[in-house]
Design a protein around this nucleic acid. Structure first.
Lengths: 343, 343
DNA sequence: ATTAACTGCTAATACGCATTAGCAGTTAAT
DNA sequence: ATTAACTGCTAATGCGTATTAGCAGTTAAT
């Protein structure tokens, strides 16, 4: 009923018959300071705190001390809505787990930008309420990244990032080697004519896949078809594929692979009987498709965990932050078979 | 390279040749105050702000003003880890969406409690950094709820809650009527002997299902079996079910229904051929089961949205907050058929 | 000619906490 | 008997902002 005005240390102090400073010391004074406050007084204060349920205002705390055990999470797209939810959830899972261990809370920055155009440095941005932040998204704004790098605000990116006026601290997946391993596996199965369905950039994630692929060529492996645009009509891709004489197709996008597989099935072709398909990356919810695609695993949760740990290190020890690429293990799947001999 | 010491309004003031107060006024003074600052001065200050990229420290802002456009989200279980992720995600989806619209950020309180025993009022809790909070979880701590209700801190629960020393503001799903509608539907299909698999309480969510069920009895509808424990062996449930002569079983837990269906199939029984099954609530990811169960929809996203909107109203207008139950529409499914005539 | 109203600003203060310097009283050491 | 060290605290200050009261100068009104 009564609206008990928010308690302050002054109130506690009055009730315990001490000064506000003493309350503060009891709450979080260094051992050296605490040593000078006798058990008796300490207990009296604690008692009052307990019965009143007083909790220090974290804002004021931060104001005075500069830190508040909050990690910001900035996403260049809204984190939960439908399509994105599947993409971000695993990262958040890892982030939350590690944050909990380190005893940090998470601030999801949702309001930072309007609609499509999210900006870290938007006017009125509340990022700084957090002690540091994690940045995730498929594609970053380079200007902002540069500003972050040159600034003194601790952050860690999830996903590899090119230098932006300096090295960017990140924890990413090693897509290049993940891709390379799959290409080599295809080679071992007798494939020599390869197709690549997906752009070679500009985002780091796509660029890495392409570079891993490109480096694996040679040694009898040849790129016979490269469709750089994503989302082409499945039949077009299929026609090109068949026309090129490729025996295996590498897809950057799962969706493309799914559609091409369906189109192939519609024509009476089978995978991996007639040609093989490989997807460069794992996807959360295997969109209801008939096949479990051969791919590589993206350790999203672990990325979230390690990025969080790195960020905490930056915040607490002034660490510079490093660059970590986590191994992406191959996922067997059932769409990569021996190369079909061509007539 | 250089670590540019964080700018303050004092710095801006010095650069623009005015006082700190003027800077503050230019930034966010009321029109009445602004009117007294000539265009020329305003522009000079704005210019400095623009070139320096100054952004007001949100912490200090909150310190002075008392609000910071942050909504806390407290979950009685960690929000993301595996099992929970599916449960909380749809709520968060709605919450984030609405928060974005209202231009609030979200503070996920992850570190509030250790392990199982999460507490809102845990020592060191940082809840108050937010202007208000949303509370979610299957089961609440009544003591804490009472304290929240009696306090002046704005909050809104997601899911119906019994009074706790006063009415609890919430946005929930109308499970009682959702359940009732399904029972009536079964009645219309000729069922008269019903089984209920699930506890009648104590959590509101389960109590509501039970009360809706209970109220729908009579009129020739009879409860012939009630198994109050969840997670019983499927075969035991099935035996009891068949022995009771029930023609339709209502499950509180999808998992129970899935297991019983499997057990029935193993014995050569079919649903809804031999008996019908109804699940009281929708579940995020239909655990890979053969059947699409007849159930009712829980509008989780909408609950998140409306709860967020209500919370913002409480914060901004000192609104008392209401109690909203959203309709849970029936989900057709394929497990509720006509009652089988008993010999 | 006096007052009133307006203009263009600034000084001062509050917000709640952490932290430092130091006061007054008591013992212990020399 | 003087100094030193220790005990148990408190006063004072700063963090960066928002806000209110009000100052000094100018113009307008009576």
């Amino acid at each position: 009923m009564a609206a008990p005005k928010r308690l302050t240390q002054h109130d506690i102090a009055k009730l315990a018959g001490v000064s506000q400073a003493t309350v503060s010391l009891v709450l979080n004074g260094a051992p050296t300071a605490l040593a000078r406050i006798p058990q008796e007084t300490r207990e009296r204060v604690q008692q009052v705190i307990r019965t009143t349920g007083y909790v220090a205002d974290p804002i004021a705390r931060r104001m005075a001390k500069g830190l508040n055990r909050i990690l910001g999470v900035f996403t260049y797209e809204p984190a939960f809505p439908s399509a994105q939810a599947d993409f971000f959830t695993p990262f958040l899972l890892g982030i939350e787990e590690e944050a909990q261990i380190q005893n940090y809370d998470l601030l999801l920055l949702t309001g930072a930008g309007v609609g499509q155009d999210r900006k870290i440095f938007a006017d009125g941005n509340r990022l700084r309420i957090a002690d540091g932040c994690l940045v995730l998204g498929r594609e970053f704004d380079r200007t902002e990244l540069t500003r972050l790098v040159s600034g003194d605000y601790p952050f860690v990116a999830i996903g590899r990032r090119e230098d932006a006026g300096g090295p960017v601290p990140y924890v990413g997946g090693d897509y290049a080697n993940g891709t390379r391993a799959l290409v080599e596996k295809a080679g071992a199965l007798g494939h020599s004519r390869l197709a690549y369905i997906g752009p070679p950039g500009p985002a780091e994630s796509t660029a890495d896949r392409w570079s891993g692929f490109d480096r694996a060529l040679g040694n009898g492996l040849e790129l016979v078809l490269h469709i750089e645009t994503v989302g082409c009509a499945a039949d077009e891709i299929l026609d090109a594929l068949l026309g090129s004489g490729a025996t295996v197709a590498f897809f950057v996008e799962l969706a493309d692979a799914v559609r091409v597989e369906a189109a192939a099935r519609a024509r009476g072709l089978s995978i991996p009987g007639d040609f093989s398909a490989v997807v460069l990356g794992s996807h959360i919810r295997a969109e209801r498709s008939h096949m479990q695609f051969t791919a590589f695993d993206i350790p999203r949760e672990e990325m979230g965990r390690q990025a969080t740990a790195m960020l905490v290190r930056r915040i607490e020890s002034g660490d510079a932050g490093g660059q970590i690429l986590l191994t992406c293990e191959p996922v067997e799947g059932e769409t990569l078979g021996p190369a079909k001999k061509r007539t």
